[in-house]
Deep mutational scan, measured.
Amino acid sequence: MFYPNSPQTSPQLTQIPYGQQYAMMQRQIQQPYHPFATTEPQARLYPYHYQGPIQQEQGGFITQQSTAASPQYVQMRVTPVDQSIMSGYPNQTANGSSSSSFNYNIHPQQQQQQQQQQQQLRHHAMPVGSVPLQDDRYRKQLIVNYLAPDVTSTDLHELFSRFGELDGARIIYDKQTNMSKGYGFVYFCHAEDAKEAVERMSGYEFHGKWLKVGYSTNPLNIVPSNSSPYVHAGSRGAAG
């Protein structure tokens, strides 16, 4: 039997160049792979992502010199942007860049009308829970959420009447099932009393439920100042 490094198959040491006398086997001759043993700084910083320098080929596509990437890492192929796409944008300079302001050559009167329309939209648009300043009635009506099913309009009136005089209180019921929808409205005579009720009743436990109280901004629920107070009856038909 002959071994790869046996004296019968191995040459004389004098015939082997210096430095390879003890590297006779194939696994010894093959050098191990060192990912950080390279002179390129990109490979030292990113050993798993770097795959060699990027070269520009004919046709405008950018390719990489090395083989496919590892399945664990996804390499994105980048193509140059066609400058003709950006030619339609206004205020574009000769080098292809555009300024931040756009001039669509709008007539001054049209621009003024658009600004007025935007101001009107901001004036009428009102986020949930906010209180408008032009109508004091919005500051007097509250919406009470997360009410228990057994709470009546009379219970709601008695709960909030300790903060001040009320114009009314009612629970909203479903017309088909005649069941409470879980929320109601309270109408105060003074805005200061309503503000105190919002601050003190939010998070209050009532009939096993934690109440959420806020201003009601729905104009359909506003009680006119010259109208008669609501009837605080315990029956659902009268309260709904």
Rank of each mutant, 00 (worst) to 15 (best):
S153W: 05
T217Y: 09
H207P: 08
R236K: 10
T217F: 02
N226M: 00
G237L: 06
P229F: 04
P224W: 14
F188T: 13
E196F: 03
Q65F: 09
A194S: 10
Q56T: 11
Y215F: 08
H207Y: 09
F2C: 00
V223S: 09
V128M: 15
L159P: 14
N105Y: 15
P80C: 06
I16L: 04
Q120S: 11
L45M: 05
T93V: 02
G129L: 03
D155E: 01
A238N: 01
P219M: 10
Q120Y: 11
A43T: 07
Q28T: 09
Y183S: 06
R236E: 06
F185E: 12
R137F: 02
T63L: 14
S227T: 10
L156M: 02
P219E: 13
Y22I: 12
Y204H: 06
N178Q: 02
Y230I: 01
H49A: 07
S180W: 05
Y173V: 04
P11A: 14
V231T: 00
A194T: 06
D174T: 08
Q115G: 07
Y183G: 10
E57T: 13
P224Q: 11
N91R: 11
E40A: 09
M179G: 13
Q64E: 11
P41D: 13
S202M: 15
T14C: 02
S153D: 07
Q141G: 00
H107R: 01
P224M: 07
F102L: 11
S84R: 14
Q119V: 12
G164F: 02
L121T: 12
N145Q: 12
P127A: 14
L13E: 03
V144N: 08
P224L: 02
Y230F: 03
N103Q: 03
A43V: 11
Q65S: 06
H157C: 12
S225K: 11
Q20D: 00
V78I: 13
E196M: 05
Q176K: 09
G168F: 12
Q75K: 09
Q116M: 10
S97A: 04
Q64K: 06
Q21T: 08
Y187F: 00
N178A: 02
Y73E: 12
H207Q: 00
Q12C: 09
I171S: 03
Y146G: 03
F102G: 05
Q110L: 07
N218H: 08
Q51L: 06
S216K: 07
P53N: 09
Q92D: 15
N178L: 05
V128W: 02
Y104A: 04
M24N: 12
S225R: 10
C189M: 07
M24F: 15
S101P: 11
A239L: 10
G240S: 05
Y204W: 00
G60F: 13
D82F: 02
H232A: 09
S100A: 11
G184E: 06
T154P: 05
A238R: 00
A43Q: 15
T177Q: 04
G59E: 14
I143Y: 01
Y183F: 00
G182S: 11
L220T: 10
H190C: 08
N5T: 07
S216C: 01
H157I: 14
Q112I: 04
L166V: 03
Q114N: 09
L220V: 08
I172S: 00
Y230L: 09
Q113K: 04
P90F: 05
Y183I: 15
Q176I: 00
Y89G: 05
S161Q: 11
P219D: 11
S130D: 10
F2W: 11
D135S: 11
M76R: 09
A68H: 02
K175G: 02
A37K: 00
Q42G: 11
Q55L: 09
I106E: 14
H123K: 09
I29T: 12
S101C: 14
V81F: 15
S227E: 03
R170S: 02
F36G: 09
S216T: 02
H207S: 04
Q176T: 10
F160G: 09
E205S: 08
T39E: 00
Y215L: 00
V198P: 09
M25P: 10
M76F: 07
R139D: 04
M86R: 08
Q134L: 06
V144M: 06
L13K: 02
L166Q: 10
Y73F: 00
T9H: 03
Y230P: 00
N178W: 15
Q109E: 15
S87H: 10
G208Q: 05
Y22K: 05
T93Q: 06
L147T: 05
D167M: 15
P71D: 08
P229W: 11
G52Y: 06
A125S: 07
G52F: 10
Q28E: 11
G234M: 11
A23H: 00
Q26C: 09
T93R: 08
S87T: 07
Q56L: 13
Q120M: 15
P7A: 11
